[in-house]
């Protein structure tokens, strides 16, 4: 039982990271219908920025964290401006390919700058455990869960209570109509990319105590976050987090209770099963074309 709870917590913590990356996918998708295959790599880059600020320049953890988030938000806008904006409105396939290309580029460049070794960021949560009776929970995992909850709440408020959030939802439904209603669509898209890169950075920094940062971490985790987003129904913010947590828990349970090899496959098996039963994911909307 104790094992189970322990596995559950670490699964949830890992799942939260997946969920945060998935959140980035969903944000961009909701606003622009673009599936950003480079989301994981944005996270990786965010992690490296944080490592540079905290590990190399020796800044305070929180200052470094904030700096990385700000830098990545700017970088997200830049990436949107250069890679995505010129092709917005072209077939999805083209845009997906462009983001795949962006991902390749970021991975390689990160490898060139920071090398291909593993890096660790020292955080206030790296050590220490919470003891509840005989249950031992590491702070690093709990910190991820707490941060995810806070971020989700903030995003929820942002999208539902602020004008900008509403504008974003409007432009995701119909960009032309939003444009006619006086919404600065281009700026909205830019901001969405900034937010999504910032969220990815949070994921990268929070991840640091759990796993090492290396140039391929984005690819590896991005490919786990994808099923998470799809499981949640791509386009649903709570769905992304729930999907992420599900994937994380499945993975950690499969790793503990099933023979070797199942850990990596289990999330995908579950994903395929869900897609077979509900092609729009767990929280997706089923809308059919009108003829």
């Amino acid at each position: 039982m104790l094992d189970f709870v322990q596995q559950l917590v670490s699964g949830v913590a890992l799942g939260c990271v997946y969920g945060l990356i998935a959140l980035g996918f969903v944000l961009v998708y909701k606003a622009t219908e673009v599936v950003n295959f480079a989301q994981g790599d944005l996270m990786m880059l965010g992690g490296f920025f944080a490592f540079t600020f905290i590990g190399m320049l020796g800044l305070n953890y929180w200052v470094g964290f904030a700096g990385a988030v700000a830098a990545m938000a700017a970088f997200g806008m830049l990436a949107e401006r250069i890679v995505v904006r010129p092709i917005l409105g072209y077939p999805q396939f083209s845009i997906i390919m462009a983001t795949i290309g962006l991902g390749y580029f970021l991975r390689s460049v990160a490898g060139m700058i920071w090398g291909t070794d593993d890096f660790k960021i020292e955080t206030p949560f790296s050590q220490g455990v919470l003891r509840l009776g005989s249950l031992v929970l590491a702070y690093d995992k709990l910190s991820v869960i707490a941060a995810t909850i806070i971020l989700c709440a903030l995003l929820y408020l942002f999208f539902n209570k602020t004008t900008l959030g509403t504008a974003m939802r409007a432009s995701s439904e119909n960009m032309l109509a939003a444009y006619y209603m006086g919404i600065p669509v281009k700026r909205v898209v830019s901001i969405v990319w900034a937010i999504s890169a910032a969220v990815a950075t949070c994921a990268g920094v929070l991840l640091a105590p759990i796993t090492f940062i290396h140039s391929n971490v984005g690819l590896v985790l991005g490919l786990k976050a994808f099923p998470a987003a799809v499981l949640g129904g791509f386009g649903s913010i709570p769905g992304a987090v729930v999907g992420g947590v599900l994937i994380g828990v499945i993975e950690s349970m499969a790793g503990f209770y099933l023979p070797e090899g199942w850990k990596d496959v289990a999330p995908y098996l579950v994903l395929l099963a869900v897609l077979l039963l509900k092609p729009e994911g767990l929280f997706g909307l089923h809308v059919r074309k009108k003829v």
Partner: peptide, 9 residues
């Protein structure tokens, strides 16, 4: 990898 990426984009 970087060249790949740039070419695709």
């Amino acid at each position: 990898g970087a060249i790949y990426g740039v070419i695709i984009v």
